[in-house]
């Protein structure tokens, strides 16, 4: 049977999603842009490097996700890191070394390193 049969079911998915997001509030969130162009410029390599480095550094409360285009062609590959209680920060121009350094510095102790891309848009949220 289909999972969504009514507006009420739809609302439930919205609530579940909100709850899931709220539950992540104490976690480090790493969102890696993986559109065709981001992958071509090394997105998958930095995702793997960051996963591996996080394990190596014993950082357990980190969650990785993939998303599409972050629109910053000039600084690919890009990653958005959200530390607990902080605003998301977008890092660009990463390579494997830069990605590992990001884990060692920003993920581990909140020390900003590398290329930070300022937020230059307002996102319409529904």
């Amino acid at each position: 049977m289909a999972k969504i049969q009514s507006i009420a079911d739809l609302r439930k998915f919205q609530e579940d999603y909100k709850a899931k997001q709220a539950a992540k509030k104490d976690k480090i969130l790493v969102n890696v842009s993986l559109a065709t162009c981001s992958i071509a410029s090394g997105g998958k390599v930095i995702l793997e490097a960051m996963k591996e480095e996080s394990a190596k550094q014993g950082i357990g409360n980190v969650e990785f996700m993939q998303s599409g285009c972050m629109t910053y062609c000039h600084s690919e590959p890009t990653v958005v890191v959200t530390l607990p209680g902080k605003d998301p920060v977008c890092f660009g121009k990463l390579d494997e070394t830069g990605a590992r350094e990001l884990v060692q510095k920003y993920l581990k102790s909140g020390e900003v390193c590398g290329t930070v891309i300022p937020v230059n848009y307002i996102r319409v949220e529904l």
Partner: peptide, 9 residues
């Protein structure tokens, strides 16, 4: 592009 780069497609 409201969701591009924010959600898992």
């Amino acid at each position: 592009t409201r969701n591009c780069g924010f959600i898992d497609p």
